[in-house]
């Protein structure tokens, strides 16, 4: 803070300073207040659902049984998405940062950023009209040949609107995000580390393994966690793609449902205590994504001092 005698005179300027600094502080505090309100509203609107008579709720089961199934569905969808997207995304990020020709790399990075900006409803529309029908033959094949695994129990859905399809759509959605974040981390690898590895005779892959990946590991983890947060909260892709139903183990039959999609589908037609139940579901989703995001930030913060950047 630099204040000195020269600038301390003149009351108009001083009032301007006061107003401006107060406005800035109020704006900052408003954010805290809004977030506090989000939590309070969600809690307040959820409480009636917790004690509600199961007969009034959707499906006639108690709130906790209902939300339990939704949580499982959300986790399954996010897990499929992460399993599919993480290796591909890291590979693509490495490709762009260390393998592609320099001139191509910049354009590719830009394209990936643009893909990350495509609205989720478009991915959902693509999933339901293009991907789901295309996946029916593989599902039939899986049901016939791998049906003994509980995950692939037949009969396969005839429309392809299943949990696995939804997971694939989610993976396609979060892939550009994880790629974009990891690419930035990979580009930050100290050039000296890379050149030292190459000078010692390392092949390109060995250079990546000993110089780039150790440096970028916390960054990759946090990128994946942010992708996970996105996958957990994603609504439209699931709401459009998944033909929902009760909880089942098979990924190639219609069934299961996620919290976010349930809210989007049921909220416009719900009333009374059912609305409260949806608010409670939203609260649960909020808490889960909050935890995931905080773990991601924590990992980044913990590794900040030790990273090669300084």
């Amino acid at each position: 803070m630099s204040s000195n005698a020269l600038t301390d005179s003149g009351s108009a300027g001083r009032a301007g300073d006061k107003i401006f600094s107060t406005a800035a502080m109020v704006a900052g505090s408003l954010i805290l207040f809004v977030l506090f309100c989000v939590a309070v509203f969600l809690v307040k609107e959820s409480i009636p659902a917790l004690t509600a008579d199961p007969a009034d709720l959707k499906g006639g089961v108690s709130f906790f049984a209902h939300i339990g199934a939704l949580i499982v569905g959300t986790l399954i969808a996010a897990a499929i998405a992460l399993l599919l997207a993480t290796p591909v995304a890291v590979g693509v990020a490495l490709f762009i940062s260390h393998y592609a020709p320099r001139r191509l790399a910049q354009g590719l990075g830009y394209i990936v950023d643009l893909l990350a900006a495509i609205p989720s409803v478009i991915y959902g529309a693509w999933g339901v009209t293009v991907l789901a029908p295309a996946l029916v033959p593989p599902y039939v094949w899986l049901a016939e040949n791998a049906g003994w695994i509980p995950l692939f129990t037949g009969p396969a859905s005839a429309t392809g609107k299943t949990m696995l399809t939804a997971g694939v759509v989610l993976a396609v959605m979060i892939m550009p995000i994880v790629t974009s974040l990891s690419r930035e981390i990979f580009l930050q690898t100290p050039k000296l580390h890379e050149e030292a590895a190459l000078a010692l005779g390392a092949t390109r892959w060995e250079m990546v393994r000993v110089a780039v990946l150790p440096f970028a590991r916390p960054g990759i983890v946090s990128a994946v966690m942010l992708g996970l947060g996105r996958a957990l909260g994603e609504t439209m892709a699931i709401a459009l793609v998944l033909s929902s139903g009760p909880m089942i183990a098979s990924l190639i039959q219609s069934g299961n449902q996620t919290i976010a999609a349930e809210i989007a589908l049921a909220f416009p037609e719900s009333s009374g205590v059912q609305t409260n139940a949806l608010f409670a579901a939203g609260l649960v989703l909020f808490v889960i994504t909050l935890a995931v995001n905080m773990v991601a930030r924590w990992i980044v913060a913990r590794h900040k001092e030790f990273s090669g950047a300084n």
């Binding site: 977030l35 989000v38 969600l42 909260g233 608010f279 939203g282 994504t289 930030r297």
Partner: peptide, 15 residues
């Protein structure tokens, strides 16, 4: 603000 970046959009709608 970091926490807010992670709010699922549907939860913002509910709020």
């Amino acid at each position: 603000v970091d926490v807010m970046t992670g709010i699922p959009s549907i939860v913002a709608g509910l709020f």
